[in-house]
Design a protein around this nucleic acid. Structure first.
Lengths: 135, 135
DNA sequence: TTCACTGCAAATGATTTGCAAAGCA
DNA sequence: TGCTTTGCAAATCATTTGCAGTGAA
């Protein structure tokens, strides 16, 4: 089995061409376990790894991967967007001081989810546990 | 008991002067039940009510009120910040299509909250139930 | 009088977009 | 070849900031 076959599949399935940039970014994203990255972070990492990509392409790619279901966007901080390589059901710890976003390992179960307003359906539930340095 | 006495108290307590702008914004914010506003929304509303305030002052005021504990900032959308006049423990429904943010009435209880990473303490838990038009 | 507050306009910073050049099918 | 992608630089957009003028104590 070739590495990132699910990435290639995802790209093909949605008609996205497996270009050099997209494959390089996919490798950076998916070959190091679960990650939480911002566009700036991924761009810096790419340049560092010798991959020539423009920041605009990194933004485009992150969004394309997200719409194809390879990534999940997480909103925790109004000033920047994080993308999570783990698209399965899970929640997060967020340290507003350092900007560190980490997965909550054990599942968080919500006792009786509220019923949505009339005519609306629940798409997703996001739980963000905001933490800071213990006093 | 004068109206908004808690607002005046909050302002005094933190050394914020009760200026015309701050009092007018406080009235708009706190005299119509629980509200979720963005700076742009509140600014438009103020102008509409004949209150002369600059957008910059609205931003400043919202942040000042938040740091004094009169408001709570809610991050649901990377592109804009919402402020909630209800500062008590509760969670939200968010419709990404319309931008509507509403309170979840009945309490959402989380079965066994995870323990935070070493050396960290939990400041707050935000639960956002993302909804959309039922198919 | 003094120092906080306000408004304006300019600055910022993350993100997006227009468009011509380059790349994949 | 024909339709995607890319990169760059310019454009956006919400938000912040510098600073001179205004107002509260």
């Amino acid at each position: 089995m070739r590495p990132y076959s699910h990435v290639l599949d995802g790209l093909r399935a949605s008609g996205l061409r497996p270009t050099r940039q997209r494959l390089a970014l996919a490798e950076l994203l998916f070959s190091h376990g679960d990650r939480h990255v911002t566009a700036e972070m991924l761009h810096a990492e790419a340049l560092n790894a010798g991959v020539r990509v423009s920041l605009a392409t990194v933004y485009n790619t992150l969004h394309q991967f997200t719409s194809v279901g390879l990534l999940r966007e997480i909103v925790v901080d109004a000033s920047r967007s994080y993308f999570d390589t783990n698209t399965s059901e899970h929640h997060h710890f967020f340290d507003g001081e350092t900007g560190a976003l980490t997965d909550i390992r054990n599942p968080v179960s919500i006792a009786q989810l509220p019923s949505p307003p009339a005519g609306m359906k629940i798409d997703r539930v996001d739980v963000i546990v905001r933490v800071s340095n213990a006093a």
